[in-house]
Design a binder for these strands. Structure first.
Lengths: 145, 145
DNA sequence: ATCATAAATGCAACAGGGTTGCAAATATTA
DNA sequence: TAATATTTGCAACCCTGTTGCATTTATGAT
């Protein structure tokens, strides 16, 4: 029985997705695998730059390919900044809690929507302003193109 | 029994929220009330400009005050563009379906998350890439400030 | 190993959403 | 109607994310 972190190991992940084994991709995977919250591009750049700089365009392109291959999941926020988490470590899909002031995002256990409501009906540390459920994909028209 | 559109009527909405009755606010409310999908700021500006131009800063500020007062609900998208819907016309909170190509957003009936899964497990016109559940608000630390 | 080809990366410049400071215009209250 | 507080417009700006093109790096066949 492998742990989620082993299953997500960089070179296997890239091989399974049919992506070439570049040092850039491995570095970004390494950061995502060891993150304990979903990361933004600026979070990733900051971590990369501690060791060796990487161009932001490269980061965007790598994340874009990871997203297409289903390696990572993208989470939009109110502030227009997307965050990313490893799909294999964060299964199944689960709610995220986001503070609109300090912009901290944390993962919740994978429960149903009505359970989310129940959870926050009780007195809690977190004051909810808004709950969003978004289903993103391709509409019928755009699938044909 | 009033219809949702009557309940949302502009001058009452502003009065209840304690906001002054400016023509700008009424124009934006009018557009939101008559929208059949959640609108982005550029959607709103485009509609406004057909009649008489309004500065985009004003639109952002008005939407921001509406959001603080709970008059409208904000829905983030993968593309970093927020969309807005009248809270009183769109109760309770419900999922949104968003096409990542044409960027069309539509409202779904207010069902639970597991029902959403069931709905899309069956053959469907819409191909799901990603489901996001986000709870936005204030964490304990930021509530104190 | 080495070479040719395809893919990945860096750089500069750009596009668009959203924000801030300040001056001018408008609404509210007395 | 005048005084004050609020709202609006304008210019300039910040940040996220994208595009085109030149350069570098990985891959696959010889």
């Amino acid at each position: 029985m492998k742990t989620a972190r082993e299953q997500c190991e960089a070179s296997n992940t890239l091989k399974n997705a049919g992506l070439s084994q570049t040092s850039h991709r491995k570095r970004i995977l390494h950061i995502l695998i060891h993150a304990d919250t979903p990361l933004s591009v600026s979070d990733i750049l900051r971590q990369l730059d501690q060791e060796r700089k990487m161009n932001k365009v490269t980061v965007y392109r790598i994340l874009s390919s990871f997203k297409s291959e289903g390696i990572i999941r993208e989470i939009p926020t109110d502030h227009g900044v997307n965050r990313y988490e490893m799909a294999c470590q964060h299964n199944p899909v689960h709610p995220h809690v986001y503070c609109r002031i300090c912009r901290t995002m944390t993962c919740m256990p994978p429960i149903t929507l009505s359970q989310v409501w129940d959870l926050f009906a009780a007195p809690s540390d977190f004051r909810i302003d808004n709950i969003n459920v978004s289903i993103t994909g391709l509409c019928r028209t755009c699938q044909r193109k």
